[in-house]
Write a protein that binds this DNA or RNA. Structure first.
Lengths: 263, 263
DNA sequence: TACCTATTTTTGTATGATGACTTTTGCAAT
DNA sequence: ATTGCAAAAGTCATCATACAAAAATAGGTA
């Protein structure tokens, strides 16, 4: 018996060697087949049983592979009909240098997203003030304090920030607000430490405490049921965020011009 | 054995009402839980068996839901260890599984979409007024007259209506406005003859001429560069649309009560 | 404590069965 | 010959069960 001393915790060296699941291998194989143009949109794949047979695995594995590709937007399954190709040019799975590249030139994108958020969230804040039920009000407040707790602990707050805004969208009782906000997704989180454009300034206590002050104004307005006030507070918050972004752009330019490099 | 993949042409009613799979529902539910901040990165989920129990489905379904989220980059499964949250902020395409669902049969949903549009488009109209370049201004006007031309010819105008709104979003010079509007898609068109809830009243000349009057006010404001006025005109337009929807709801109720059935 | 081993837990894979939905086929009526 | 409809076959969706494989845990020995 081989004995490894590894009582190591699971801290998960993420993308390192891990035996690939069969369904992942097969999903990758199929994905490559699609991308190489062997199948065109609308084509029907062989049945699950046939695929299972030809790959030499069980139908379970095939189904999980198909499920992954469906989640990617490449395939569509129709009960009783079959499996069909519906799209090919989707984003890469995960391991993207593409993602990182995308981020680096992304501050201008973030500014654009913020602009859309101003439109969306000023209204959602107003609606939330008018319509929130007690449970939703409590949820908003909870997320507010969660942000605060993480802030005191010096932990990353980006996710809590998003949760706060999201719970306000939920309090509109209009599911589309939530869905649009979700769709905008991570691009809406400006201040996560995990973000590639996190700087010391973003992480500073003072910076985040400022955010929290703005959040508090929003929370108070919604709790009070003051729609107009909530609208203004949200607009002030997001406008301030926009301004913070612009400042960061200026900072970067300044640092570049003065030749300060900390590599 | 000729095992060639047949190109059997499925009716391809893509986003038509299709019963959602259990695994998709559960994946969506879990995804929303993550985004609302209930679980943080590194958190270990309950075991598959426990999840199956708590959701009241078989382990197979849970596994497929998990597989989809793994493909999304949200989760990681480790054999013998469990299921872990590894990332939340994966950008999801705007026409994601939820928005792609067909809800056109439900007027209340259309009202919700319209509410989001009010938030979005009042701002986009204002921004368009401030930023449009000559070419974009011309494009908006062209779409306006195209609507008019179709109206005179008695042809369907829904598409042109959408094009008009879309060109305004384009004139903001912020691509995300266009993206979000596109994602909301055709469900945002209240007056298409192809829409399942087209009625004689919707198709009436007077009705659409009214629409066009509102459009004209918007166009004039944008051409004049008057942001505040554009904002007001757009809000008036969409609010009026909302009201028209509500009227249609009342009509339907009235017809039902008086026993008139127009299968 | 340190190390090794056995047990338990948990995910991965396989198999078979049943239900639901779609497409095709066959047959009857016009 | 064409149309309409019902039966049949094909296919995915879900369930239940079993076993294998990897990891975590507990226990024992020096």
């Amino acid at each position: 018996m081989t004995t490894h001393l590894n009582t190591a915790p699971p801290p998960a060296n993420l993308n390192s060697s891990r035996r690939q699941k069969l369904s992942e291998r097969i999903a990758g194989s199929l994905r490559q087949d699609f991308l190489s143009g062997q199948f065109s949109v609308g084509h029907k794949l062989p049945t699950e049983s046939q695929l299972a047979l030809s790959f030499g695995v069980s139908r379970t594995v095939i189904r999980e592979a198909i499920a992954a590709l469906v989640a990617d937007g490449m395939l569509e399954t129709r009960q009783g009909a079959g499996i069909f190709v519906i799209g090919l040019q989707r984003h890469q799975p995960l391991d993207g240098p593409i993602l990182r590249q995308d981020r680096s030139s992304n501050i201008s994108h973030a500014l654009n997203v913020l602009e859309v958020r101003i439109a969306l969230e000023t209204e959602s804040a107003a609606l939330a003030a008018a319509r929130r039920n007690p449970s939703q009000e409590a949820q908003i407040q909870e997320n507010f304090f969660e942000f605060d707790r993480l802030l005191q602990l010096g932990k990353p707050t980006g996710q809590a920030d998003f949760a706060f805004h999201r719970s306000i969208a939920e309090a509109t009782n209009n599911p589309f607000y939530v869905e649009v906000l979700d769709a905008l997704g991570e691009r809406t989180i400006p201040c996560d430490v995990n973000s590639p454009h996190a700087t010391e300034e973003v992480l500073s206590f003072a910076y985040q405490a400022g955010l929290q002050r703005e959040h508090l104004a929003i929370l108070n307005a919604i709790s009070a049921g003051d729609a107009a006030c909530a609208r203004d507070a949200m607009r002030a918050h997001l406008s301030a965020s926009q301004e913070r972004y612009r400042e960061r752009l200026r900072d970067r330019r300044t640092r570049y011009q003065s030749g300060v490099e900390t590599t």
